[in-house]
Write a protein that binds this DNA or RNA. Structure first.
Lengths: 337, 337
DNA sequence: TTGAAAGCGCTAACAC
DNA sequence: GTGTTAGCGCTTTCAA
């Protein structure tokens, strides 16, 4: 059984209040007393029971991070950055995976397990705009992603439309006109896929290039295999294209592989651009031109914002914070042909 | 302020014990009473305060997972599997990143933050065999990895030597004789790099192939960029080789890229084999032949073993549990030339 | 500068 | 079947 304050107090011959004072760096303690207490702490190997402290203080020193799946590279890198930012602030992170499933996301929001934490950073995938009201939870929360806007909580996200438009314009500037898309979601009006597709269309329109559904590939999931499969479908249609915009890097990498297997040279025959700025996109062959949507900033800002709310800024109206993006030029799509 | 047992009891006109009984599915409650209580719970939106329950029970319902860095794909996939296995058992996971730094690993082991959890799944990278004694901690722990053996705790790990030997033998059987290595650690006797190199040498020896330090590339870190850089160094030496064994997939992928940029055809000129069975190894160009060391089994077994210890099997002597591996044949190294 | 005692919300004897 | 009550280990008034 671990030592308690009482054990330390008894050994040091003082009251538990005195021990508590020493532990919490209360300033007015006689040096001799402090030494006695510290000796007792060392002898017993005492460490404070955080659960008890939490019960008393109402705080746990932990936050929760809920993402669809850590095996998706984007969320793994996001989680790595969130945990690092939290650690710098002296807070630990409990990671939950929802699988991107709407029901599980709902369940998570009301889960008593969240009581173990002071707040939540939530990146939904299954829930949508119609579920915004469910975000009105009785604990501090920061929303990530682009499934829900103007909800009742702080929202840290990226400029999807503008960034996708910039990526498409980059391809157009480099001389491409027939730009295929991999990863669109059928009938979706909001969410990463829809917003990025919207940016794509805006860029086409501004350049006077007609939108052609024949070179748009749909897939619900954004794993590598889906990018590959969707690319095969587009190739099977037999339509011409000279570029591919993968709505994320994973899709783009899967698509690029299929292109090369099919004998299309990248970037000579087909330029490829991704979206996410993943580490691995830098080491594919060819390396992948992509858009860094500001993930690192998003992670840091989400943690800082959540901690502010936990710290008492609960009354301020909800804010939306937008990251800056930038196009990372690499080999799969050089700036000029 | 959230509702408490007292609030519910008052509203339902019963004692807190009755409410507690309802919540904990105590069998002998009159249906009418149960209904009253449930109505009150619903009306107040009551959820139990887990911190208080934990203080009482001495359990938290959370476990900690400490890995070097989630942005390393292997650990991201491991974490995803650990969290999934824990969730299936009704337990949440607090993820810590040590950066593979020995001091931070030591610090973590004594961190009071662990008091928030019932036990730890620990994958050290900086600590080594000489630190085994530090693993004798006053809480349940399961060790992962291959930095420390025969320590005082349960250990779930892979057959590094045998798996690396199998990968090398696979290359030899396919007709390769000059097999370069990417990722060796200078002077290391234990750890993933040393054990896998040992398996490599055993395979060479069994086949009567001399070991040649000229085609062994050293790098401490195992990021993609390190694989690329190390491959460049080997190429710069101007020595012949017809295969590369990357001591993990990330290194192998980085190396493969450099080979291709240098004009070596994979697998025609050089066959490449990795180690880890990462998802992304299936979608490189060419797809990467690799060894699946049984990561999924490791994750599930680590969680199950830790929960057993937490559940009271504290006295049983420490066990070492070894995963089964298998070579996954893909394009970068076909079984026959 | 230090001590005594209340109580955070819950569970589990033990009574009735 | 249901109520009373004593803590889990800590922080924090309030006194001394």
């Amino acid at each position: 059984m671990a030592a308690t304050l009482h054990d330390v107090a008894r050994l040091a011959g003082v009251s538990i209040k005195t021990v508590s004072n020493v532990i919490n760096d209360y300033p007015h303690i006689r040096p001799a007393t402090r030494e006695k207490v510290e000796a007792a702490i060392a002898e017993l190997g005492y460490t404070p029971n955080l659960t008890a402290r939490n019960l008393r203080s109402g705080r746990t020193g932990a936050i929760a991070l809920a993402v669809p799946d850590l095996s998706l590279a984007y969320f793994a890198e996001l989680a790595a950055e969130v945990i690092a930012a939290a650690e710098a602030a002296g807070v630990v992170v409990l990671v939950e995976q929802t699988g991107g499933d709407r029901d599980r996301e709902f369940e998570l929001l009301r889960s008593p397990r969240l009581k173990l934490t002071d707040g939540l950073i939530f990146s939904p995938l299954g829930m949508g705009q119609e579920d915004a009201a469910a975000l009105d939870v009785p604990y501090p929360m920061v929303l990530l992603g682009e499934r829900i806007f103007d909800g009742p909580t702080d929202h840290v996200t990226m400029r999807n439309v503008e960034a996708a438009r910039a990526a498409t314009e980059y391809l157009i500037r480099s001389g491409r006109r027939r730009i295929a898309v991999v990863g669109a979601h059928e009938g979706e009006l909001i969410g990463s896929a829809a917003l990025r597709l919207q940016g794509y269309r805006a860029a086409l329109e501004a350049a006077g290039i007609p939108y052609d559904d024949q070179i748009v590939g749909y897939t619900t999931l954004w794993h590598r295999a889906n990018g590959a499969e969707t690319m095969r479908e587009i190739l099977a249609r037999g339509v011409e294209f000279d570029a591919v915009f993968g709505l994320n890097d994973t899709l783009a990498l899967g698509a690029m592989r299929v292109l090369q297997v099919a004998g299309r040279r990248v970037p000579d025959d087909v330029a490829v651009v991704g979206f996410d700025g993943l580490d691995e996109a830098e080491y594919s062959i060819p390396s992948l031109t992509t858009v860094d949507p500001g993930r690192d900033w998003i992670a840091k800002t989400a943690v800082a914002t959540l901690l502010e709310r936990i710290g008492g800024a609960a009354e301020a109206p909800p804010r939306t914070l937008l990251a800056e993006f930038r196009v990372l030029e690499r080999e799969s799509a050089p700036a000029s042909m």
